[in-house]
Design a protein around this nucleic acid. Structure first.
Length: 115
RNA sequence: AGGGCAGAUCAGGCCAUCGCUCGCGCGCGUGUCCUUCACGGGGUGCGCGCGGGAGAGGAAAGUCCGGGCUCCACAGAGCGGAACGCCGGGCAACGCCCGGGACUCGCACGCCGAGCCCAGCCCUGCGUGCGAGGACAGAGAGUGCCACAGAAAACAGACCUCCUCAUCGGGCCCUCCGGGGCGCGUGAGAGCGGACCUUGGCAACGAGGACCGCGAGGGAAGGGUGAAAAGGCGGGGCAAGAGCCCACCGCCCUCCCGGCAACGGGAGGGGCACGGAAAACCUCGUUCGGAGCAAAGCCAAGCAGCAGGGGGCUGCUCGCCCGCCGGAAGCAUCCGUUCCGACGCCCUGCGGGUAGGCUGCACGAGGGCCCGGGAAACCGCGGCCCCCAGAGAGAUGGUGGUCCUUGACAGAACCCGGCUUAUCGAUCUGCCCUUUUU
RNA sequence: GCGGGAGUAGUUCAGACCGGAGAGAACGGACCCCUCGAAAGGUUCAGGUCGCGGGUUCGAAUCCCGCCUCCCGCA
């Protein structure tokens, strides 16, 4: 359970995604942008969006799978009570590259959880 | 063994572990409903855990066709529009598939005819075999188009060339000197006539240059232009020619035979009319209502609004009576009175659009094997077996190991049948060609 | 996912159907003239796989078919 990434961990609604785009803090890293804000609950929620221009559906799904897997591996290190949205801007990164850039983004956003 | 063509199948595999989506079973917690006096039992929803199962394609793509399904519209017919178009069959339907026919192209072989130095070459046509191709109805119904070039581009025409007569110029013969006959050339770069310019000459006139005019026909073979030139080729014929006549071929008409048909074969006749293009308009025949799962249906909640009921007048506003609340005057205080201000509702039903949830949403023109029919596509109320993704920011990934041929194009979104496009390869079957061996 | 539209010079467009035959305009660019110099003005010039590939035709920017790219609308 600790490592899972089921439905309640993800942002589900179109309106919630739109709220993040309109009123969330955002910082930019290597090919990835992070949009985040407090959601007033005790859990974190997560979403990934791939920007335009990423070829076909196979490449777009590949980016999202890598990003989800990276978030799953470092969700324990993020302080709770936030909505996070990763916007993929540059394409073709490997899993370890994506992990590193996302970990750096979370640190710069000040969301690193006190162990 | 290698290569080519056609068809079918597969689309990296395996192990461990952490994850995702959806069913199934079990357990726990919880909400609700039914039953019971109660214990308890049952239905249903949600959450969590465990076990076990399933989880993208041949193109899922492009959205180019055809359907199912849903909603809307609809008496019938016509006009208009769109798509399709050899024939037969298949299919739910199709612009798809199968088979057949004609045509075009390529290769090989053979043959008729004509030309030439008769060896052979070349041209035209035909037949047979193999292979390839495709929007393959109609241009002998109408309108329009065919640039440039060329004389002429579609009811043909007449530039050059060809031919005849008239004209003109020589020649030969005859003659009664008036002329006649024969034959040649010319028939528009020659000749004749007219007027002009330059030059020589006193002049008559000569030489040179450029311009204008010169009658009547025959015929369409040849030249040249063009993508295309008005049946092809050869012979006869003729003043020269021409389907004018003839042979072969092409074309058209009629008849007979074969075939379900497209069409094929044969005989007779006509005497050439009928250029291309319909992916120009169009004509003929067949088919077609529109929109699309973001269709459409259901559920609960709240809002605007509408209708009805509970006091009266009014379509509405202002206002009045009435009700209630607050304040002021007056009064020792309260009720009441007067004035001022604010408020004037409740219940039920309907309910566009939007956001949420559920359905549509996966048992179907379904798949596999066999049997039967058929030449094949395909078909069978013939038999057995199987259930095979169902999301909703949108599911197949990460890590470690291992093996090989080092893995292409690429991700379902209501569902099927096709077409088109992208694509590393592997295996099997059938046919053809080359080489080697027996 | 469904439906619709458009690709022509560096940019914005015409030409495209009825009706096929010299690829054009404006702005922008370059040279020159004008000016002491510049701007404006004037002359000349360059710049095009007509998105790509097939087909029909004697001939295709145009007609037909198949792809590619971009844009718009529908909850």
């Amino acid at each position: 359970m600790r490592r899972s990434l089921s439905r309640k961990d993800r942002l589900r609604r179109n309106s919630e995604i739109r709220e993040l785009f309109s009123s969330a803090a955002r910082i930019e890293g290597r090919g990835v942008k992070l949009l985040y804000r407090s959601n007033g609950s005790r859990e974190n929620r997560f979403a990934v969006v791939v920007a335009r221009g990423c070829g076909g559906a196979v490449r777009r799904n590949r980016e999202k799978r890598i990003t989800r897997e990276a978030y799953r591996s470092l969700k324990e290190t993020i302080s709770s009570g936030n909505d996070l949205l990763f916007l993929i801007v540059r394409f073709g990164a490997t899993f370890t590259d994506r992990c590193a850039s996302m970990r750096q983004l979370v640190g710069r956003a000040g969301l690193r959880a006190a162990e």
